[in-house]
Design a protein around this nucleic acid. Structure first.
Lengths: 340, 340
DNA sequence: AGACAATGTGAGATCGATCTCACACATATT
DNA sequence: AATATGTGTGAGATCGATCTCACATTGTCT
């Protein structure tokens, strides 16, 4: 048998008061007699009344939900962030809607549009594109709080939380150069992505500082999945003059590179040196352990959520721009290359 | 300047028709004159009108959102499932709210209650507890579609999608026994969890079938994170008579075990043999490659979402119970143990 | 011509909760 | 006694979209 949800009207009827009084009693505002309040509470209890958040939201304009659009939940980096945001959202009495853009701008736009029509209170977005952001700007126009995460979008004035991608990449490549490498490969994802650009810039800057001419044949572009990274790595290292070292821009791609090297019989660090951006679980299990640029993953999500909920509670400072440091963690996947 | 969202009323006013007519034109139902329809479309276009889904939902009872409560998004297994569900939900014009119970029953209950007050259309849940499920039963009572995923809940009549946990565990342990092991450790998570129980049963069954007495000292319980698994493994293998082989019940725990072994100087498969439930990215990179029981992760989420959307579109067959096969993938982490 | 459908449109109710306003009654203040 | 203040309550508007119903207007068939 299908039981309908009890509404405020039902509660009011059972308690023999008007809807207005029932609402006052349940939300404790305005004047309500003690006795009346008790009656209403009892009635609500008895009916198992729970307010319809939809109706509440329609009335006062917003749903206690925040939206979060990330590149790919399957990337442990984003999974961690999503998790941290959800925890903080829950603490603040909100639910979290998670959407994945799958690094497609179109999907990001349609997802955002669909979530906006839900009158969601605010958004945390890792924008797919660094440049193409009318949809994000329009959030500003309509005063919907937005926090950018992991990536910055040009022309969008809002809080953001990112890491020092360029510096991290530079440190990694400088280290490779210091170890004697000159043919340094780069395995990166789509250039529209902000982090990809910044890491690429760090890579180029480090090369330039040492007077090493950039070489496009050393750069492979792949989607950020293990499978795609395997293929891209194989292509990169099937050339006549393959790199002697590789820098990968995220942990899934690092793992792809590892698998590719194994399948090609290339040994680390003997045949090739490797540094990955973003640490991962088994980086210290592999033999050798993998040298990485680590970012403070556990702080990013919390920081972004913090910023968003500050906005939601009315803070109107100028946009805050948080940039976390990255750190080169030297382990064993880089060996000295004697110039030949 | 803050622009307000255009409402149907605005569109109607601009097109010089009533709200009712505007609604008809935009949703194409009932009779509308061609010319009028055009006018309305144009007005909507001009104002950038997008319907308020809250209002729509309040009117017709439900929001085009499905909820999904999983154990932990950071587990790649659940991340993959969440991703697949989201993709299918999007195809069906729905958004996905993801919550994480963090394997706490209380959290699962409060999350569910909070999502229900959103008038969400249906749920996909991986219940924390195999037995304690009044909150899930009440979904049945109020006719809210529910699909259980990865885990079954007693006394809850609903579709579910699980894998053959017991069989998978049995195959793994039988294989270890066939390779001469008799002191076989089990690294498992909380016994309230359905999969944990089933895998444990498989483990016990295999032992019993070979006349091996169970020994509680060989069983370690840990939360399903790499860090906790490391600790649990270290405790397990610090005993006087440690196991000669270990079976771990999920991939994060497998990875934890790997890290623990490394830190303890225990080598696989020389000192200890290892089989993990659930495959993972680097299982074929490590040396030796890790033998695992694999489950068809890519099908689970889709299957569950499929079932849910079938229900949402009115299907009312008896509950469907899907159980996928698991497969023992033999790689190199198990070696023959000569009885000592 | 009269009856009857088909087509097109608007007024108003509805979903459920909230909030403003008006009113009633009591007590306090001049 | 007359006015002000404090308390407690209900009627009704509101949020935005949808849907029922009533009312036109046209065309069609006997």
């Amino acid at each position: 048998m299908v039981r309908k949800r009890a509404t405020l009207k039902d509660v009011a009827a059972l308690a023999n008061v008007s809807r207005a009084t029932a609402a006052r009693a349940l939300n404790s505002y305005g004047y309500v007699g003690d006795e009346t309040a008790q009656k209403v509470q009892a009635a609500a209890e008895k009916l198992g009344y729970r307010g319809n958040r939809l109706a509440q939201a329609l009335r006062n304009g917003q749903l206690p939900i925040v939206g979060c659009i990330l590149g790919d939940i399957q990337n442990p980096f984003f999974a961690r962030i999503a998790h941290d945001i959800e925890v903080l959202a829950r603490e603040c009495g909100h639910n979290l809607v998670i959407g994945s853009s799958e690094e497609e701008l179109d999907q990001e736009i349609s997802l955002l549009s669909s979530l906006r029509s839900l009158s969601i209170r605010g958004f945390i977005v890792a924008p797919t594109s660094a440049t193409n952001n009318a949809h994000l700007q329009s959030l500003n126009l309509e005063n919907v709080p937005l926090v950018l995460i992991d990536r910055v979008a040009e022309d969008v004035e809002s809080d953001h939380v990112v890491v020092d991608n360029e510096g991290g990449a530079r440190k990694a490549v400088e280290y490779l150069i210091a170890m004697g490498h000159r043919r340094i490969g780069l395995l990166q994802d789509d250039m529209r992505i902000f982090t990809s650009r910044e890491r690429m810039t760090g890579y180029r800057t480090a090369l330039a500082a040492s007077g090493i001419a950039p070489d496009d044949r050393l750069i492979a572009v792949s989607q950020s999945t293990v499978e795609h990274a395997v293929d891209a790595t194989i292509r990169l290292f099937s050339q006549k003059m393959p790199p002697t070292a590789l820098f990968t821009v995220d942990s899934l791609m690092t793992q792809g590179a590892l698998l590719a090297f194994r399948s090609m019989g290339i040994s680390i660090p003997h045949d090739v040196s490797l540094i990955g951006f973003d640490d991962f679980n088994l980086a210290t299990f592999t033999d050798p352990q993998i040298t990485v640029v680590s970012q403070p993953v556990s702080e990013i999500g919390r920081a972004a959520a913090r910023l968003l909920f500050d906005r939601l509670s009315g803070k109107s400072d100028p946009p805050q721009k948080i940039r976390f440091e990255t750190k080169l963690i030297v382990r064993g996947s880089v060996s000295r290359h004697s110039a030949g």
